[in-house]
């Protein structure tokens, strides 16, 4: 291989070599013109940190709290009811998908959601919300004994005004702050889903489920909150 010395590199080399042997060249300071602004944009001072996923232990404790503050084995029994595994399997089936670490096999905890974790949140959320709707939203349950839907029986016909305070209560329960501080439109968006589901269940042609239309509507609202991104992150 031959090496060719280009004019540019030769000059650079010459300058470098000469710089080694000559006294430093004094360069007089000159006035520098300020750079012209081409655009003005606001400085971004927002913190650059992503939201964190709840530790699986926190999710589980919160879930049990929402279920009435009962131990896991009892929650499993209540969630299953007398329907076998229709709504709930058993806790051990969910632990890996919820992101718990497995110290025995040296598997670390999951710190990010994945599709399966989302499916598990959905499955567990359904069990919680269905059982709560069954228990709370019926005449036989006095208001003080209503664990999740701790409000008077809603009107059979969806009503946006009546919906808001009940939704706010659930919003506080699941997300930890009043709905009025949420991004605009959240209450309306949830009401729309609620209204549609109540209507669908009230339709005489629809298959019958174990829930009344109102129970089904509130179960969906509950599900939307217990699966909400803000519920799972902090």
């Amino acid at each position: 291989m031959t090496t060719r010395l280009t004019a540019g590199s030769a000059t650079a080399l010459a300058l470098a070599l000469s710089a080694c042997h000559r006294p430093p060249i004094a360069i007089a300071p000159t006035t520098v013109q300020p750079l012209l602004a081409t655009a003005v944009i606001p400085q971004d001072t927002t913190p650059k940190e992503d939201v964190r996923l709840l530790a699986a232990e926190v999710y589980l404790r919160t879930y049990l709290q929402l279920f009435g503050g009962i131990p896991p084995v009892e929650a499993q029994q209540r969630a299953r009811g007398n329907e076998g595994t229709a709504l709930f399997d058993n806790w051990n089936d969910y632990l890996a998908a919820l992101g718990f670490p497995d110290y025995r096999n040296d598997l670390p905890r999951s710190t990010q959601t994945n599709g399966l974790m989302m499916a598990t949140f959905d499955r567990l959320g359904m069990a919680l919300c269905a059982r709560a709707a069954e228990h709370d939203l019926r005449d036989a349950t006095p208001l003080p004994q209503r664990l999740l839907f701790a409000f008077a029986n809603p009107p059979a016909t969806p009503d946006r005004v009546a919906f808001a305070p009940a939704f706010d209560l659930l919003h506080r329960t699941f997300l930890g702050y009043p709905a009025r501080l949420a991004p605009a439109g959240r209450t309306d968006a949830f009401f729309d889903v609620y209204r549609d589901i109540v209507a669908r269940h009230a339709d005489g042609k629809a298959p019958r489920t174990r829930l009344t239309p109102v129970q089904a509507g509130w179960m969906a609202v509950c599900l939307g909150l217990v699966r909400h991104p803000e519920f799972h992150t902090y």
Binding site: Y94, A130, I197, R210, M219
Partner: peptide, 10 residues
């Protein structure tokens, strides 16, 4: 985890 109970939701 992937099964759903039809008796509770349409």
């Amino acid at each position: 985890v992937l099964s759903r109970a039809p008796q509770y939701a349409l």
